[in-house]
Structure formats: structure tokens, C-alpha cells
Design a protein around this nucleic acid. Structure first.
Length: 341
DNA sequence: CCACACTTTATAAGGAGATC
DNA sequence: GATCTCCTTATAAAGTGTGG
């Protein structure tokens, strides 16, 4: 079969099923262009040039798939983040310095619209009309219902039970510890658990834009719009979810604040619905915990500040530090619970 | 430090099949 | 049979890394 494939390839260069797959294998496993050139000449592989073209084609096709999603009628979201690559040059010359690539990697993904009114969800004017409403908010707006309250109390009980069973001194030798933990997890109240669904994420390629600033956010959004083939009006006429890290959300808000008086929705970025990703929510939550409940090490010996000193933790609480903050909060909480217990 | 290997990129061009 | 399109390779130049 290999022989026939080579004969077919020699007769017609376009018939390259075997040679393309083999070339892909050779190249991705580190064959140099010279090796590939010999393999190509004996009919076992396509040329290195063709391989490069294949990579470009695969990349373009992927972006095309993402554009298809953006032009369809459903809901899609944009997610992007900076990627910074340091290029250390060995033979340094005037024209060959160490440098850094500041690029932005982007993906588009489809949002599951089952049971969702797409037009209402994407209605930009309805979203903008709600601006300023927080000023008039009262406690009643966030007052939990009796059902909410009962739900939270049950969760609270289960969390405490789980911590006691997990960490009480000697609990590891409890005979039915595993069963107890399983029972606790099983009885943990759940709120509308979502059924798992296959997600639809499509790579949108990399942009030669440094996203990590307010100006960078504007530039990357314009570059995304341009690649999507949507016009400024089309792109900014509906609510667009922009997902990223904390810094991205923060810069986006800053940029929108600076541009509140600009000429249209695209420039004002008021179409953007920024959303920190799950880890960054956790990062903000732990940091908020430190800001709200840190306390004072001297005047309050039960404070997080006092526990931090007692445990010899040396990080700066003014700066977000997820792992250290979570560790301190849990250590402190567990100690309190077991002490009361 | 140098010669050379290697990659990337631009340009030119050929063969097969489709179309008119 | 001429012409076009698609797919491909050859080749050179420029830029950069590395072993001796």
C-alpha cells in the first residue's frame, strides 16, 4: 500500500494522503528540514514547505469555525488572556537582542441557549437602562427569602460537620469516618445543579496586541471585531460577554469609565459584559475576606491577623494571594470549630 | 570566534484535472 | 486544445544558533 501511495504521489502531487500524514509525524517528532527534504524526494513525505502550509491552513480553518459561530444567531462569549514569551538570544548582535512577545490568545465559545430567550439576553438597551440602579438599591433587594435562609443554614451545618469529621484530632482512626463523610456529602443541599453538557469552544488565534492595559483592552477588542468580520455596529449592538482574568475585567471597567463620553457603543465599550473566570472569582473572594475580616493582631487575638502571626505566615495581605489567603482562612476556621467542639 | 547547519520566507514554476 | 485552478516543489537569501 505504501508503494502504491508513492506511485500515486509521483504521478499526481495532489494525491498526498500518505505523505501528508507521514510528514506530519516526521516533522512533529523533530525531523529537520534536510531529513524531510530527503524523505520528500523519495516520495515518503510532502516537502517542509507543504507542512508549513498545512499548519497555516489548520490554523485558518479553526479561526473560520470561530467566525462561523460569531455570525450565527446564538449566544457566544469571548475569552482572552495575555501570553508573554521571553526570547533570549544566544548570538546577541545589534539586530538580535533579547526581546519579549506580548501577545493575546483568544477563544470564542458558544453559550448553551436551551430555555433562554436569546433576544432578551442580548438586549443591550435593557442592560444599559439598568445602569445607576445600584444607587437606589436597598437592603430589601438582596434580602434572602426564608427558603434561601433555610438552604444556607443547612449548607452551613453540613460544612461544619464535614470539617469536624475531617480534622478532629484522632478522627482518622474513627471506624466509620469514610461512611460519615460520604453521608455528609450526600446530604449536602444542592441548588439547581446543572446537567453536564459538551461545551463548544473554538480557538480564535493569537493577536499581536499586549492586552494587559486599558489601551490594550481597546486594541484587542477592535482586533477581535475585525477578525470576526462583523461591523462595528453589528459587534457592539448586542451584549457581548467578555471573559478573562481579574486584571482584564478591571482594565475593561477602567477603560469604559475613561470612555463614557465617546461617540458610539463600540468606542464606549458599553456592550461588554465582563466576567472574571472561576479562579479569579475565588481570588477576589479570598482577597475580599482579607480586607473585610483581617482584624488587628494586637487588639483582637481571635482575628485572622493574630492567627497569621501565630502561624508564622509572612505574605503581604495588601496584595491578592489566593493560596496563602485560602490556607490561612481555612486553618483559622478549622481551629475555631475544633476549639468550640 | 568562525564556519556552517538549520529555519523561515519570498519567488518562480511545473503537473494534473476541470472547464469552456 | 487552450486556459484556469489547485496543489505542490525547487531554490535562494536572510537570519540565527552552535560545535569545535
Amino acid at each position: 500500500m505504501v508503494a502504491i501511495s508513492i506511485l500515486v504521489f509521483v504521478n499526481n502531487r495532489a494525491s498526498n494522503a500518505l505523505q501528508l500524514v507521514l510528514g506530519l509525524f516526521f516533522k512533529t517528532n523533530g525531523a529537520s528540514s534536510r531529513v524531510l527534504s530527503v524523505l520528500s524526494n523519495i516520495g515518503l513525505s510532502v516537502s517542509a514547505m507543504t507542512f508549513e502550509r498545512l499548519k497555516k491552513q489548520i490554523s485558518d480553518d479553526a479561526i473560520e469555525l470561530a467566525i462561523t459561530l460569531m455570525l450565527a444567531t446564538g449566544i457566544w462569549a469571548i475569552i482572552f488572556d495575555n501570553i508573554n514569551i521571553f526570547l533570549r538570544k544566544h548570538s546577541q548582535r545589534v539586530t538580535n537582542h533579547n526581546s519579549m512577545i506580548h501577545a493575546t490568545n483568544v477563544a470564542i465559545f458558544g453559550v448553551d441557549t436551551e430555555g433562554i430567550d436569546i433576544d432578551a439576553a442580548l438586549d443591550l438597551q435593557a442592560k444599559l437602562d439598568k445602569r445607576g440602579g445600584r444607587y437606589a438599591a436597598t437592603f430589601d433587594d438582596i434580602l434572602p427569602t426564608p427558603e434561601d435562609n433555610e438552604h444556607m443554614e443547612r449548607i452551613f451545618d453540613h460544612l461544619i460537620a464535614e470539617i469536624i469529621v475531617s480534622y478532629a484530632p484522632g478522627s482518622r482512626s474513627w471506624k466509620q469516618r469514610k461512611e460519615m463523610l460520604e453521608k455528609i456529602m450526600e446530604l449536602m443541599p444542592r441548588d439547581r445543579p446543572l446537567p453536564p453538557k459538551k461545551s463548544d469552544a473554538r480557538p480564535f488565534g493569537v493577536f499581536d496586541v499586549n492586552e494587559g492595559s486599558k489601551v490594550g483592552i481597546v486594541q484587542v477588542l477592535e482586533a477581535i471585531r475585525e477578525r470576526s468580520t462583523l461591523s462595528e455596529e453589528e459587534f457592539s449592538a448586542k451584549v457581548r460577554a467578555i471573559l478573562g482574568d481579574w486584571l482584564t475585567s478591571n482594565n475593561l471597567r477602567g477603560s469604559r469609565h475613561d470612555r463614557a463620553d465617546d461617540i458610539n457603543s463600540m468606542e464606549r465599550i458599553d456592550y461588554a459584559d465582563e466576567l472574571s473566570q472561576l479562579f479569579h472569582f475565588a481570588l477576589q473572594a479570598t482577597h475580599m475576606n482579607m480586607r473585610a475580616h483581617y482584624g488587628h493582631a494586637v487588639s483582637d487575638p481571635t482575628s485572622l491577623a493574630a492567627h497569621k502571626g501565630l502561624l508564622g505566615r509572612k505574605w503581604d495581605v495588601e496584595k491578592p494571594n489566593y493560596a496563602a489567603a485560602k490556607s490561612l482562612i481555612r486553618h483559622s476556621l478549622i481551629a475555631r470549630l475544633l476549639h468550640r467542639h
